[in-house]
């Protein structure tokens, strides 16, 4: 037996993804987002989370998946990692499960169009279901944010 991991499960399209629970600060319902001009497309803007301004990204956009219109099930997961606080827009977030770290396999090259480096591994839950564990520090890697074009003045 490996370590027990508590994981928040959320969905992007048909896929189930997991983030370790201690990286997640809160899960919020969708709320008005203030657009930030000239920011990369997947950065949807900033929200006011109890007095703190937090940038919000569309995880679909971040992974280069097709972005969809927010629904009632859409949630903003506020994560804290690498001294950064960022919100992820996901299609739904509704479960916390325990998984055994031994059951996490290294990820295949591409899962559902998401590059392997964003993934920490794949965990089997139950009989058939697979859970893709996110590599948060890579997802939040700022170097990846394309150098913004300077504003034309």
């Amino acid at each position: 037996m490996g370590e027990e991991l508590k994981v928040i499960v959320f969905a992007l399209g048909e896929e189930q993804y997991g983030i370790e629970v201690d990286k997640v600060r809160t899960i919020e319902r969708m709320q008005p987002i203030t657009r930030v001009p000239k920011a990369p497309g997947f950065i949807k803007g900033v929200i006011n989370l109890r007095g703190v301004v937090i940038p919000v990204l569309d995880l679909r956009g971040r992974f280069g998946l097709e972005e969809t219109v927010a629904t009632d099930n859409s949630r903003i997961i506020i994560v804290a990692a690498n001294e950064l606080e960022v919100g992820f827009i996901v299609d739904s977030a509704n479960d916390v499960i325990d998984i055994d770290s031994d059951t996490i396999d290294s990820p295949p090259e591409v899962v559902g169009g998401i590059k392997a480096k964003y993934l920490q591994g794949i965990a089997k839950i139950g009989e058939k279901q697979l859970l893709v564990m996110l590599n948060l520090s890579e997802v939040l890697n700022r170097k990846e944010i394309i150098q913004l074009e300077q504003l034309e003045v």
Binding site: T34, V36, P37, K38, A39, I43, V46, N48, G51, V52, V53, I54, P55, E83, L84, E85, V86, L140, R142, I145, Q147, L148, Q150, L151, V153
Partner: peptide, 19 residues
Amino acid sequence: LKPLGKYLPAIKALSGATI
């Protein structure tokens, strides 16, 4: 004045945010 957070790259015409 509130900072825009560390994640966002510096955006030239903006100096921060407020609520």
